[in-house]
C-alpha cells in the first residue's frame, strides 16, 4: 500500500449527507473480479446529470473529496474505496463516516479525515467560490489546511503509523504468528468446523 504523509490538491465539494456505498459505486459494478477499473462507476447515477459537481470541467484532476455527514453508510463493499482511489481521490473529509467504510479506507491508504461540520461548510464555500483553491491534508501534523483555515484532526496512532509507513495489515499480523498458533492450540474441541462431518 502507498504511504501517505501529506497531500495537497484541489477539491470536490459534495453537498450531500448520508451518501451510501450504493451511491458511491452501484451494485452492478461489484461483479468485477479485479481491484482496479472502478473509476467510471464512481457516483455513476449522479454523473448522468451534467450539472453534478464531478462533471464540472474545473473539478477535473481534483484529489480531495469534501463530503457531508454520514459518508459511506450501507453495504460494506470495499469497492467504494477502490472507486474513489481509482478516480484519483487521495483523501475524503467529512464530519462523520460509517464505521466499515472508514476501516476499509484506512486499510487501503485512502485517508478519511473527520473534521467538524462547520469546517466542512467553510471548505465547501471556499472551494465552490474558487475551484482552484487547494486543501492540504497533513498526516504528520494531523492538520487540514486551506486558505484562512487550519484545523487539527484525530487519528489513532496505530492507523497513522501504518499509513505513514505504507504497511499492510497481513504482514504486520504475521509477525505474531506464534501468538496465533498458541491460541489455536487451546481452542475447545466443541468449536465448529466447516469440514464435512
Amino acid at each position: 500500500m502507498e504511504a501517505f504523509t501529506t497531500h495537497t490538491g484541489r477539491a470536490v465539494p459534495l453537498r450531500r449527507s448520508n451518501v451510501d456505498t450504493d451511491q458511491i459505486i452501484p451494485a452492478h459494478w461489484l461483479k468485477k473480479v479485479t481491484r482496479n477499473g472502478f473509476e467510471d462507476g464512481l457516483f455513476e447515477a449522479w454523473r448522468k446529470d451534467q450539472d453534478f459537481v464531478l462533471n464540472q470541467p474545473e473539478r477535473h484532476g481534483a484529489t480531495v473529496l469534501v463530503a457531508g455527514p454520514d459518508f459511506g453508510t450501507g453495504s460494506s463493499r470495499e469497492h467504494a474505496v477502490w472507486a474513489l482511489q481509482n478516480y484519483g481521490f487521495k483523501t475524503v473529509l467529512s464530519s462523520r463516516f460509517a464505521d466499515i467504510f472508514r476501516g476499509n479506507s484506512l486499510k487501503n491508504g485512502l485517508l478519511t479525515v473527520v473534521v467538524p461540520q462547520d469546517v466542512i461548510e467553510r471548505l465547501w464555500k471556499l472551494t465552490e467560490s474558487d475551484p482552484a483553491a487547494e486543501i492540504t491534508v497533513d498526516l504528520v501534523a494531523r492538520e487540514v489546511r486551506a486558505e484562512g483555515l487550519t484545523q487539527s484532526f484525530e487519528l489513532d496512532d496505530n492507523a497513522r503509523w501504518r499509513l505513514l509507513e505504507g504497511l499492510d495489515d497481513i504482514s504486520l499480523t504475521l509477525r505474531h504468528e506464534a501468538d496465533i498458533a498458541e491460541y489455536e492450540s487451546s481452542r475447545p474441541a466443541y468449536k465448529p468446523r466447516t469440514v464435512e462431518v
Binding site: S76, R77, E78, H79, V81, I100, G103, N104, K107, N108, D169, I170, T173
Partner: peptide, 9 residues
C-alpha cells in the same frame, strides 16, 4: 461484516 482487505487478512 468486513471489507475485502479484511477477508484477505
Amino acid at each position: 461484516g468486513i471489507g475485502t482487505s479484511q477477508v484477505e487478512h
